[in-house]
């Protein structure tokens, strides 16, 4: 059972294992190149489970008194666009029977909702925020969407780009927010119109939104950060 050769083999194997374990710990950099492959191998299943878990019901909300304005950090990939409120138009295009250019008055005329939710950034921080404005679903309904639509592309004034699955976009708590914590949306937080939803990570919640496009499938571009390697579904 333990010939000398055998024992040596084992000892070598033990050494290999120890070496392997510690180099994984100490020289993880060597494995960094594999990150994307690991993600590509596991994300399809993870996304399926995420979508399954998500459900369509409402997520419990916080109390208005729990908001944490100081905890909400500002991220921007390309500066802060300033949009004159009078000149603002939201374009709704794609697989819709009635393409639209909505001004702020048209958005304000829709039923207004508030969602007091935890805004979670992929970086790890989170803040409770009260977002309010019309539901994204109500805005899309104005354009009479075709049943073929399955994804929504979202364009922003700073060239930020996002794509969502339509189920998440139509979720009752997904809003096109025009207000934050009861006051008009500050410029740094996406004025005049941004996305807000308790079921997606912060990078899905585009600021300075100027265009919506309903599509049947995803194109080459998944999103500003997704194209650099972040998860596409990014559900919470």
């Amino acid at each position: 059972m333990s010939s000398p050769a055998d024992g040596l083999g084992r000892r070598q194997a033990l050494g290999l294992l120890m070496g392997g374990g510690s180099s994984l710990l100490l020289g993880g950099c060597a494995l960094n190149g594999l990150s994307e492959a690991v993600g590509e191998a596991t994300q399809p299943l993870n996304e399926r489970i995420e979508a399954l878990l998500q459900g369509r019901g409402a997520v419990p909300e916080f109390d208005r008194r729990q908001v944490q304005p100081e905890a909400l950090l500002v991220n921007s990939f390309n500066g802060t666009p300033r949009i004159a409120p009078d000149a603002y138009r939201l374009a709704v295009r794609g697989l819709v029977r009635r393409p639209l250019n909505l001004d702020l008055a048209a958005l304000a005329a829709l039923p207004q909702r508030e969602c007091v939710m935890r805004h979670v950034c992929v970086e790890g921080w989170a803040a409770i925020v009260a977002w309010s404005g019309p539901r994204l679903a109500d805005v899309l309904a104005l354009a009479d969407p075709s049943p073929l639509g399955a994804y929504l592309a979202i364009r922003s004034a700073d060239q930020y780009f996002e794509t969502w699955d339509l189920v998440s976009a139509l979720h009752p708590q997904t809003l096109l927010a025009t207000h934050m914590n009861g006051a008009p949306l500050p410029v740094a937080n996406g004025a005049p119109v941004r996305l807000a939803s308790p079921i997606k990570l912060g990078y899905k919640l585009s600021k300075w939104v100027t265009g919506l496009e309903l599509t049947a499938r995803l194109g080459d571009r998944l999103g500003t950060w997704e194209d650099r390697g972040y998860e596409w579904f990014a559900g919470l």
Partner: peptide, 12 residues
């Protein structure tokens, strides 16, 4: 002591 190279890699 880290693995992934950057945030998205770590999450992968």
């Amino acid at each position: 002591f880290t693995l992934g190279g950057w945030l998205a890699g770590g999450r992968d």
